[in-house]
Protein backbone atom coordinates (compact mmCIF):
# COMPACT_ATOMS: atom_id res chain seq x y z
CA UNK A 1 0.00 0.00 0.00
CA UNK A 2 1.38 3.39 -0.90
CA UNK A 3 1.53 5.88 1.91
CA UNK A 4 0.82 9.56 1.36
CA UNK A 5 2.00 11.85 4.14
CA UNK A 6 1.56 15.03 2.12
CA UNK A 7 -0.54 17.96 3.24
CA UNK A 8 -2.21 20.85 1.46
CA UNK A 9 -1.90 23.94 3.63
CA UNK A 10 -3.61 26.94 2.02
CA UNK A 11 -2.81 25.61 -1.44
CA UNK A 12 0.84 24.92 -0.55
CA UNK A 13 2.01 21.31 -0.67
CA UNK A 14 3.98 19.99 2.29
CA UNK A 15 5.64 16.59 1.72
CA UNK A 16 4.67 15.67 5.28
CA UNK A 17 2.72 17.44 8.05
CA UNK A 18 5.70 18.28 10.29
CA UNK A 19 6.48 21.99 10.48
CA UNK A 20 9.55 23.47 12.16
CA UNK A 21 7.88 25.81 14.67
CA UNK A 22 8.93 29.44 14.77
CA UNK A 23 11.65 30.42 17.21
CA UNK A 24 13.51 27.13 16.87
CA UNK A 25 16.64 27.01 14.66
CA UNK A 26 15.14 29.30 11.99
CA UNK A 27 18.01 31.78 12.09
CA UNK A 28 19.88 31.04 8.86
CA UNK A 29 19.36 29.60 5.39
CA UNK A 30 21.84 26.72 5.85
CA UNK A 31 20.17 25.76 9.13
CA UNK A 32 16.68 25.86 7.57
CA UNK A 33 17.93 23.69 4.73
CA UNK A 34 19.41 21.21 7.20
CA UNK A 35 16.10 20.93 9.06
CA UNK A 36 14.33 20.30 5.74
CA UNK A 37 16.88 17.61 4.84
CA UNK A 38 16.32 16.04 8.25
CA UNK A 39 12.67 15.49 7.35
CA UNK A 40 10.56 18.58 8.10
CA UNK A 41 7.60 19.10 5.77
CA UNK A 42 7.85 22.89 6.11
CA UNK A 43 10.17 25.24 7.97
CA UNK A 44 9.37 28.48 9.77
CA UNK A 45 11.92 31.25 10.12
CA UNK A 46 12.55 32.84 13.49
CA UNK A 47 10.06 35.69 13.93
CA UNK A 48 11.30 38.89 12.39
CA UNK A 49 10.30 42.44 13.24
CA UNK A 50 10.70 45.85 11.61
CA UNK A 51 14.17 46.54 13.05
CA UNK A 52 17.08 44.51 14.45
CA UNK A 53 16.57 43.38 18.06
CA UNK A 54 19.11 41.92 20.47
CA UNK A 55 16.57 40.01 22.55
CA UNK A 56 16.84 39.38 26.28
CA UNK A 57 20.05 38.73 28.19
CA UNK A 58 20.83 35.19 29.37
CA UNK A 59 19.62 32.90 30.82
CA UNK A 60 17.03 32.70 28.05
CA UNK A 61 16.14 28.99 27.83
CA UNK A 62 16.00 26.46 30.65
CA UNK A 63 15.14 22.75 30.79
CA UNK A 64 13.00 22.66 33.92
CA UNK A 65 12.14 18.98 33.75
CA UNK A 66 8.77 18.85 31.99
CA UNK A 67 9.93 20.76 28.97
CA UNK A 68 11.52 24.13 28.37
CA UNK A 69 10.83 27.62 29.59
CA UNK A 70 12.15 30.46 27.46
CA UNK A 71 12.33 34.20 27.21
CA UNK A 72 14.65 34.72 24.27
CA UNK A 73 12.89 38.01 23.53
CA UNK A 74 12.55 37.91 19.74
CA UNK A 75 16.16 38.60 18.72
CA UNK A 76 16.23 39.06 14.94
CA UNK A 77 18.22 40.92 12.31
CA UNK A 78 15.27 43.10 11.21
CA UNK A 79 13.12 42.67 8.12
CA UNK A 80 15.65 44.07 5.64
CA UNK A 81 18.26 41.45 6.53
CA UNK A 82 15.58 38.79 6.92
CA UNK A 83 14.47 39.27 3.31
CA UNK A 84 17.97 38.20 2.23
CA UNK A 85 17.95 35.16 4.53
CA UNK A 86 14.55 34.09 3.21
CA UNK A 87 15.50 34.57 -0.44
CA UNK A 88 18.57 32.36 0.04
CA UNK A 89 16.62 29.79 2.05
CA UNK A 90 13.87 29.52 -0.60
CA UNK A 91 16.50 28.78 -3.24
CA UNK A 92 18.05 26.05 -1.08
CA UNK A 93 14.67 24.56 -0.12
CA UNK A 94 13.19 24.51 -3.64
CA UNK A 95 14.90 21.29 -4.79
CA UNK A 96 13.70 19.59 -1.59
CA UNK A 97 10.06 20.56 -2.17
CA UNK A 98 9.88 21.97 1.36
CA UNK A 99 7.98 25.27 1.67
CA UNK A 100 9.08 28.17 3.85
CA UNK A 101 6.90 30.02 6.32
CA UNK A 102 8.12 33.51 7.20
CA UNK A 103 7.20 34.44 10.77
CA UNK A 104 6.72 38.11 11.57
CA UNK A 105 5.99 40.26 14.62
CA UNK A 106 5.69 43.96 15.36
CA UNK A 107 4.82 46.23 18.22
CA UNK A 108 1.91 47.90 16.42
CA UNK A 109 -0.81 47.01 13.91
CA UNK A 110 0.79 49.28 11.29
CA UNK A 111 4.16 47.67 12.05
CA UNK A 112 2.72 44.22 11.28
CA UNK A 113 1.41 45.47 7.93
CA UNK A 114 4.75 47.05 7.05
CA UNK A 115 6.77 43.94 7.91
CA UNK A 116 4.27 41.72 6.03
CA UNK A 117 4.53 43.90 2.94
CA UNK A 118 8.34 43.93 2.98
CA UNK A 119 8.73 40.22 3.77
CA UNK A 120 6.36 39.39 0.90
CA UNK A 121 8.94 40.70 -1.57
CA UNK A 122 11.11 37.69 -0.63
CA UNK A 123 8.19 35.50 -1.72
CA UNK A 124 7.91 33.01 1.14
CA UNK A 125 5.23 30.34 0.64
CA UNK A 126 3.27 31.50 3.69
CA UNK A 127 3.47 34.18 6.35
CA UNK A 128 3.03 33.39 10.04
CA UNK A 129 1.70 36.32 12.02
CA UNK A 130 3.09 35.94 15.53
CA UNK A 131 0.73 37.91 17.75
CA UNK A 132 1.31 35.70 20.75
CA UNK A 133 4.89 35.98 22.03
CA UNK A 134 4.50 36.13 25.84
CA UNK A 135 8.02 37.40 26.48
CA UNK A 136 7.99 41.01 25.35
CA UNK A 137 5.07 42.31 27.39
CA UNK A 138 7.28 44.71 29.34
CA UNK A 139 8.24 46.46 26.10
CA UNK A 140 5.29 45.83 23.77
CA UNK A 141 2.35 45.62 26.17
CA UNK A 142 -0.15 42.77 26.15
CA UNK A 143 0.13 40.41 23.16
CA UNK A 144 -2.48 41.11 20.45
CA UNK A 145 -3.54 37.45 20.72
CA UNK A 146 -5.11 38.02 24.14
CA UNK A 147 -8.11 39.90 22.76
CA UNK A 148 -10.38 39.07 19.78
CA UNK A 149 -10.61 42.69 18.57
CA UNK A 150 -6.85 43.37 18.55
CA UNK A 151 -6.11 39.93 17.07
CA UNK A 152 -8.58 40.72 14.28
CA UNK A 153 -7.09 44.17 13.71
CA UNK A 154 -3.61 42.76 13.15
CA UNK A 155 -4.98 40.00 10.93
CA UNK A 156 -6.94 42.46 8.78
CA UNK A 157 -3.93 44.77 8.45
CA UNK A 158 -1.65 41.93 7.36
CA UNK A 159 -4.38 40.58 5.06
CA UNK A 160 -4.49 43.95 3.30
CA UNK A 161 -0.69 44.15 3.08
CA UNK A 162 0.01 40.87 1.27
CA UNK A 163 -1.49 38.44 -1.20
CA UNK A 164 0.38 35.50 0.35
CA UNK A 165 -1.53 33.07 2.59
CA UNK A 166 -1.33 34.10 6.25
CA UNK A 167 -1.27 31.90 9.33
CA UNK A 168 -2.11 33.64 12.60
CA UNK A 169 -0.39 32.15 15.65
CA UNK A 170 -2.55 32.15 18.77
CA UNK A 171 -1.83 32.19 22.47
CA UNK A 172 -3.24 29.59 24.86
CA UNK A 173 -3.15 32.14 27.66
CA UNK A 174 -6.73 33.28 27.21
CA UNK A 175 -10.06 32.29 28.68
CA UNK A 176 -11.63 31.55 25.28
CA UNK A 177 -9.23 30.68 22.45
CA UNK A 178 -12.17 29.83 20.18
CA UNK A 179 -13.38 33.45 20.25
CA UNK A 180 -9.91 34.60 19.13
CA UNK A 181 -9.79 31.92 16.44
CA UNK A 182 -13.17 32.99 15.06
CA UNK A 183 -12.12 36.64 15.13
CA UNK A 184 -8.94 36.05 13.09
CA UNK A 185 -10.77 33.76 10.66
CA UNK A 186 -13.38 36.49 10.08
CA UNK A 187 -10.58 39.06 9.64
CA UNK A 188 -9.05 37.08 6.80
CA UNK A 189 -6.64 34.52 8.27
CA UNK A 190 -6.02 31.66 5.83
CA UNK A 191 -4.88 29.37 8.64
CA UNK A 192 -4.36 29.33 12.38
CA UNK A 193 -1.31 28.10 14.30
CA UNK A 194 -1.95 27.03 17.88
CA UNK A 195 -0.50 27.16 20.38
CA UNK A 196 2.34 29.51 21.26
CA UNK A 197 4.03 28.92 24.62
CA UNK A 198 2.02 28.68 27.81
CA UNK A 199 2.18 31.05 30.72
CA UNK A 200 4.22 33.00 31.20
CA UNK A 201 5.74 30.80 33.84
CA UNK A 202 8.58 31.21 36.32
CA UNK A 203 11.33 28.97 37.63
CA UNK A 204 13.17 30.17 40.73
CA UNK A 205 16.68 29.13 41.66
CA UNK A 206 16.30 28.12 45.29
CA UNK A 207 19.96 28.80 46.14
CA UNK A 208 19.90 32.46 45.12
CA UNK A 209 16.15 32.94 45.53
CA UNK A 210 16.09 34.54 42.07
CA UNK A 211 14.08 33.64 38.96
CA UNK A 212 16.50 31.91 36.59
CA UNK A 213 15.40 33.58 33.36
CA UNK A 214 16.85 37.09 33.03
CA UNK A 215 13.37 38.17 31.92
CA UNK A 216 12.15 36.55 35.17
CA UNK A 217 9.18 34.99 33.34
CA UNK A 218 9.01 33.00 30.13
CA UNK A 219 6.88 30.85 27.87
CA UNK A 220 6.50 27.19 28.83
CA UNK A 221 6.79 24.58 26.07
CA UNK A 222 7.45 20.89 25.57
CA UNK A 223 5.69 17.71 26.68
CA UNK A 224 4.10 19.35 29.74
CA UNK A 225 1.84 21.53 27.60
CA UNK A 226 0.77 18.94 25.02
CA UNK A 227 -2.63 18.12 26.56
CA UNK A 228 -3.47 21.83 26.59
CA UNK A 229 -2.32 22.24 22.99
CA UNK A 230 -4.38 19.25 21.87
CA UNK A 231 -7.48 20.62 23.59
CA UNK A 232 -6.97 24.08 22.02
CA UNK A 233 -6.52 22.57 18.56
CA UNK A 234 -9.59 20.37 19.08
CA UNK A 235 -11.74 23.33 20.13
CA UNK A 236 -10.48 25.58 17.33
CA UNK A 237 -11.00 22.91 14.67
CA UNK A 238 -14.59 22.45 15.85
CA UNK A 239 -15.26 26.18 15.46
CA UNK A 240 -13.47 27.37 12.30
CA UNK A 241 -13.15 26.13 8.73
CA UNK A 242 -9.58 27.31 8.04
CA UNK A 243 -6.77 24.77 8.50
CA UNK A 244 -4.94 24.61 11.84
CA UNK A 245 -1.25 23.98 12.44
CA UNK A 246 -1.26 22.14 15.77
CA UNK A 247 1.76 22.97 17.92
CA UNK A 248 2.70 22.08 21.48
CA UNK A 249 4.82 19.36 23.00
CA UNK A 250 4.91 16.97 20.04
CA UNK A 251 8.00 14.78 20.36
CA UNK A 252 7.13 11.50 18.60
CA UNK A 253 4.93 9.94 15.92
CA UNK A 254 2.22 9.10 18.43
CA UNK A 255 1.99 12.77 19.47
CA UNK A 256 1.69 13.84 15.82
CA UNK A 257 -1.14 11.34 15.30
CA UNK A 258 -2.88 12.77 18.36
CA UNK A 259 -2.62 16.33 17.02
CA UNK A 260 -3.99 15.22 13.63
CA UNK A 261 -6.86 13.38 15.34
CA UNK A 262 -7.69 16.64 17.12
CA UNK A 263 -8.17 18.09 13.65
CA UNK A 264 -4.81 19.69 12.83
CA UNK A 265 -3.90 19.91 9.15
CA UNK A 266 -0.19 20.13 9.96
CA UNK A 267 1.83 19.62 13.14
CA UNK A 268 4.44 22.00 14.53
CA UNK A 269 7.56 20.66 16.21
CA UNK A 270 9.75 22.91 18.35
CA UNK A 271 11.00 21.95 21.79
CA UNK A 272 11.49 18.33 20.68
CA UNK A 273 14.60 19.58 18.88
CA UNK A 274 16.20 20.01 22.32
CA UNK A 275 16.25 16.27 23.03
CA UNK A 276 16.27 14.97 19.48
CA UNK A 277 18.22 17.52 17.45
CA UNK A 278 17.14 18.47 13.92
CA UNK A 279 17.04 14.73 13.17
CA UNK A 280 13.88 14.49 15.30
CA UNK A 281 11.83 15.47 12.21
CA UNK A 282 12.84 12.31 10.35
CA UNK A 283 12.17 10.20 13.43
CA UNK A 284 8.68 11.62 13.98
CA UNK A 285 7.87 11.33 10.27
CA UNK A 286 8.95 7.68 10.17
CA UNK A 287 7.03 6.88 13.36
CA UNK A 288 3.94 8.54 11.91
CA UNK A 289 4.30 6.52 8.70
CA UNK A 290 4.81 3.33 10.71
CA UNK A 291 1.70 4.01 12.77
CA UNK A 292 -0.35 4.65 9.62
CA UNK A 293 0.87 1.41 8.06
CA UNK A 294 0.06 -0.54 11.20
CA UNK A 295 -3.45 0.91 11.15
CA UNK A 296 -4.04 0.57 7.39
CA UNK A 297 -4.27 4.28 6.73
CA UNK A 298 -3.06 5.45 3.32
CA UNK A 299 -3.40 9.18 3.93
CA UNK A 300 -3.69 11.63 6.80
CA UNK A 301 -7.23 12.66 5.85
CA UNK A 302 -8.48 9.19 6.78
CA UNK A 303 -7.97 9.86 10.47
CA UNK A 304 -7.67 13.64 10.70
CA UNK A 305 -10.19 15.00 13.17
CA UNK A 306 -11.61 11.63 14.15
CA UNK A 307 -11.57 12.66 17.82
CA UNK A 308 -14.56 14.86 16.96
CA UNK A 309 -16.70 11.85 16.06
CA UNK A 310 -18.54 10.26 18.92
Amino acid sequence: MSLDLSVDLCGIRLPNPLVLASGILGTSAPLLERVARCGAGAVTTKSCGPAPRAGHPNPTVIDWGGGLINAVGLPNPGVEAEVEIIATAIEQLAPLGVPLIASIFAETVAGFAAVAERISTANPDLIEVNISCPNVTAEFGRPFALDPASAAQVTAAVRAATTLPIIVKLSPNVTDIVAIARAVEDAGADAIAAINTLGPGMVIDVESGQPILANRVGGVSGPAIRPIAVRCVYDICAAVSVPVVGIGGVTCGRDAVEMLMAGATAVGVGSAVYQGGPEVFGHIRDELAGWMQAHDYASLSEFRGIAHER
Binding site: L68, N70, Y274
Partner: peptide, 13 residues
Protein backbone atom coordinates in the same frame (compact mmCIF):
# COMPACT_ATOMS: atom_id res chain seq x y z
CA UNK B 1 22.23 31.91 24.04
CA UNK B 2 20.40 28.73 25.03
CA UNK B 3 23.33 26.32 24.88
CA UNK B 4 20.72 23.60 24.27
CA UNK B 5 20.57 23.47 20.48
CA UNK B 6 17.21 25.18 20.05
CA UNK B 7 17.56 28.94 19.64
CA UNK B 8 19.85 28.92 16.59
CA UNK B 9 21.97 31.86 17.78
CA UNK B 10 25.32 30.04 17.41
CA UNK B 11 24.81 28.78 13.86
CA UNK B 12 27.96 28.11 11.86
CA UNK B 13 26.81 27.13 8.38
Amino acid sequence: RCGLGVCGSCHHG
